[in-house]
Design a protein around this nucleic acid. Structure first.
Lengths: 142, 142
DNA sequence: AGCCAAACGCGAATGATATGCGTTTAACTA
DNA sequence: TAGTTAAACGCATATCATTCGCGTTTGGCT
């Protein structure tokens, strides 16, 4: 809804294209693909070449503004604003709807493995199954 | 270790190529890519075309024999035997070494979200950070 | 207003994965 | 054990997401 409340990242040139991409990501409450951004910005009256979109996304990822999500059941890579330091999704295996999972079950667990051979800096949890709409269509019979 | 103890999946034609691919996946204790399988089987004296490898992997995935893993930091899709119903990895952000995580922190959590809008059938957890070898190289900073 | 590195757009390249089609082979049968 | 046939294979080619080269445009600064 509000596209203005956010400060522009420091040291980042403010172009029409970058503003449109970030504005779209701000509205999106789910991770979206580069192609989604292409059509979404076009629908908002901003024609941006696909290569520019990819460049913006990669650049913003390096700047820490955007986060990449590579879900097992999605063809292409998805992007979202890096609002949270880690991400959890529930992905419907039928309609591929993505449902956000807010609290993090891993906090304690992370401490656990950190004591061993690994210093943990981030994590990514993907859960799949049937969303309310699709459940039942599958016959419930697994 | 043992490459023989496993039964051949029912209703699956037993070809030289399929045997080689599954044998390689059995030895691998980490998920591997189609290209890894290509070179691995070649090294074992089995020349298999890359398209056949992809066909075998897709087919075996449909049969439930093989599981796909799409890690955020790996270019290509990885495959492993579907020994476990869910998977957890710790991936080093420097050397990309993959460390297996055995116990599952999500069991209770899953019950939680299942009560809401989602019937859970599987999940996938990826943890990243620095493995023992690479930690320190990064300066410990950040 | 003018400069210039950084961004952009286009089109072409890349790399992983998939597919069409003619050839080979596993599994079944006589 | 040889014959039959649908399924699997190999090769070449296609596809699709993503990246890159290069000439043109533009935001931020003076």
């Amino acid at each position: 809804m509000k596209t203005s409340g956010r400060e522009w990242p420091a040291g980042v040139k403010k172009t029409r294209q970058r503003q449109a991409v970030l504005a779209l990501l701000e509205q999106a409450e789910k991770p979206i693909s580069a192609a989604d951004i292409f059509t979404g910005t076009a629908a908002a009256g901003q024609d941006i070449s696909l290569s520019t979109i990819y460049r913006i996304l990669n650049y913003m990822e390096k700047k820490g503004v955007v986060a990449k999500a590579k879900l097992a059941r999605s063809e292409s890579v998805l992007y979202e604003l890096n609002r949270f330091r880690h991400r959890h999704y529930a992905v419907c295996v039928i309609c591929h709807r993505i449902i956000s999972v807010n609290n993090c079950p891993l906090e304690n667990f992370i401490l656990n493995i950190a004591e061993n051979d690994f210093r943990v800096t981030g994590h990514n949890v993907e859960i799949y199954g049937y969303c309310r709409e699709c459940d039942g269509e599958a016959g419930g019979g697994r």
